[in-house]
Design a binder for these strands. Structure first.
Lengths: 166, 166
DNA sequence: CGAAGTTCGTTAGCATCCGAACAAATCGCT
DNA sequence: AGCGATTTGTTCGGATGCTAACGAACTTCG
């Protein structure tokens, strides 16, 4: 989705619409580019890495979180991944059917469900994650390591503000 | 979705999983924080600005693009906004029913549809966009103007790589 | 001309994800 | 101990957005 208009053109039009109202164009550019970059990155990774495995984006995140932190409770997976409990229920079902992980009711607390990887799931992630990371490297290849750290820090700052004001 | 684990903890676990394999942790952090920030920002803006208007995120983007560039062809709206033609058809129908914009077949080319705002649509955006921009300012308030520009630039660089390799 | 190919918007079918409501289990307070 | 409040995972209904297929309108080129 390459925008056919430049940033300057857009700013000019917006300023024309609202006359003398003071607007924060830098903030506008950050938000707009944030969504563009996130969508483009997701599409890129789904196409280049995930499509071959038949995993959806969310399914991969669930697998990744479980792989790292297993055994893990489902509520923690939802919190780490940033999606709702309802979504997680469906995705866990799919991944369990495919044989990548297992659900098990907790002994200590009958409400909780613990999740662990199966050997097949671990084997998948052993090869899938390095591939994924290699593409993450490609995505950020135009930035040197120092700037990557800065970028991650600034994104964290934004997340902090938007998640804080709840 | 505040992650209960720190970055360092996550890196340690991942390194433990894959032993000696070389991984790019900075790239991993960038991608992960990119999605977290985008989701948190979208939720924040939907909650604080859009929910009162009954507009979905996509509907707002369509309205915004049309407001700035009207009269505009539907294919251009889809390109600017970054969604599919099929999605646009539905959203345009909704916005037309609500009386915010109008469709009109082109005289020059019978395949094209031109879109213009109604007075009600313009009035809505005249008050809605300044509010939206004020919240965008809040979102980036922890960064000074120079860093906001840097952030927008780095996000553009990522978009360029991921959209380029199509 | 006119037939083949292209482009456009729409439709239909499908997958994904969420909020609300719910049942089961646990906790807290007296 | 016991009963209301809270927490957890699941189910259900709805909203959203995409791909593929399609008809209509235009373009190309022999």
């Amino acid at each position: 989705m390459p925008s056919p208009h430049t940033l300057a053109e857009t700013e000019e039009r917006v300023a024309g619409k609202l006359g003398s109202l003071p607007l924060d164009f830098e903030a506008m550019a950050v938000v707009s580019n944030l969504f563009r970059a996130a969508n483009a990155t997701r599409n890129y990774l789904e196409r280049s890495v995930l499509s071959a495995t038949g995993l959806s984006w969310t399914a991969f995140v669930v697998l990744w979180v479980t792989w790292i932190w297993e055994p893990i409770e489902t509520r923690q997976i939802a919190e780490e991944g940033g999606f709702s409990k309802a979504t997680l229920t469906g995705v866990l079902g799919t991944l369990e059917t495919k044989g990548y992980l297992q659900r098990e009711r907790s002994d200590k607390d009958g409400r909780l469900v613990n999740v662990t990887m199966t050997p097949a799931g671990r084997e998948l992630m052993n090869t899938l994650f390095p591939t994924f990371n290699a593409h993450e490297q490609t995505i950020t290849s135009s930035l040197d390591p120092e700037r990557r750290r800065e970028l991650a820090d600034m994104l964290r700052a934004i997340t902090h503000v938007t998640e804080g004001q709840r």
